[in-house]
């Protein structure tokens, strides 16, 4: 699964050029490979949202900030997808990673990853949802109107770009089962390859609707955004998060959590850090129960086996 922009920041993003430019590179980018870092270093995997070299530049002030607060050397590096981050953590090369809820839940089950902080999005909440988007001039006004229509999702392994928007139709009993919903309620389903591609497919009239993040419209150009509207909304999902490997010292966990949670967007110096951290408004401490809404969905599709783990905070 490729990372997708959850919240569009003032950063020029060109998936096409980036992906072409990434051909042949290893999945981890940094001044040196993460496995060359010393044991004393705190190794943090940042996910790439643009050209990885640009991301490496962007994270430098974040790394400097954390080093100053944690009083330990911090090594930041960039991975191209969540799977690489989790694998790196599994192999002991990563202590901390920025991931989405689905990757976290899988990482928790498989390697015991611990949730530390949830990102806070522009509406001030550590949650987000997915929407079903249509063209404003389409005449489509509700999920039921999409019977016999074409639908784009981002990726089959994507919480906000497939599982959550799909859930909208399941809750309305418009689709069922776990198979790709082609040829039934929808005349045709496409996995476009990302949020932006799915939104552009709607904008350009290649499909009737797209099921992606509530913020995906920001991936369109400003003059294009008003031409798409949401007609249905999913349940709320916890936001993307910061997780750490099991065994990371409680002291580092506490300091890291405090360092990021204290960032206040109203302070100019903190805003500069947050702008580099995916443009979020802040962080709040994460609990296992934050994932109770999405764990059953992940379990339904076999991504996790024990959703009950996420129903209380006992596991953290």
């Amino acid at each position: 699964m490729k990372f997708k922009i959850l919240w569009a920041r003032p950063i020029a993003v060109c998936f096409v050029v980036c992906l072409v430019g990434l051909a042949g590179h290893s999945p981890a980018w940094g001044a040196s490979a993460p496995d060359q870092a010393t044991a004393e270093q705190l190794k943090i995997a940042f996910i790439s949202y643009a050209n990885p070299q640009q991301v490496i530049e962007d994270i430098k002030p974040v790394v400097a900030y954390l080093e100053g607060r944690l009083r330990v050397p911090v090594k930041g590096f960039v991975t191209l997808d969540y799977g690489s981050s989790v694998e790196s953590m599994r192999n002991g090369h990563t202590d901390v990673a920025f991931v989405d809820p689905l990757a976290f839940m899988m990482a928790h089950e498989q390697i015991g990853a611990i949730p530390l902080l949830l990102e806070v999005y522009p509406e001030g909440k550590p949650t987000y949802h997915s929407n079903v988007w249509v063209r404003r001039d389409s005449g489509l006004t509700k999920a039921e109107d999409l019977a016999g229509k074409t639908m784009a999702f981002a990726d089959p392994v994507d919480m906000s770009g497939y599982l959550l928007p799909r859930d909208i139709f399941e809750r309305k009993s418009l689709i069922d089962g776990v198979d790709r919903p082609d040829g039934g309620f929808f005349s045709r389903v496409y996995f476009a390859g990302g949020d932006e591609q799915a939104m552009r497919a709607v904008f350009n009239g290649f499909v009737d609707a797209a099921g992606v993040s509530q913020y995906a419209y920001l991936l369109l150009r400003p003059e294009e955004r008003d031409q798409v509207i949401p007609i249905a909304q999913s349940i709320e999902s916890p936001s993307h998060l910061v997780m750490c490997r099991p065994g990371l010292s409680d002291d580092i966990q506490r300091k890291l959590t405090q360092s990021l949670a204290r960032l206040d967007i109203s302070r100019e110096e903190d805003k500069k850090i947050l702008d580099k951290l995916y443009g979020v408004r802040g962080f709040v401490e994460a609990k296992m129960s934050d994932f109770s809404s999405v764990a059953p969905i992940a379990a339904r599709y076999g991504f996790i086996k024990h959703p009950a783990t996420f129903m209380s905070d006992a596991g953290k």
Binding site: E87, A107, P156, V157, Q197
Partner: peptide, 12 residues
């Protein structure tokens, strides 16, 4: 793009 499929996430 759809035909390309997906590697999945962590072998799933």
């Amino acid at each position: 793009s759809d035909a390309i499929g997906s590697d999945g996430l962590m072998n799933h």
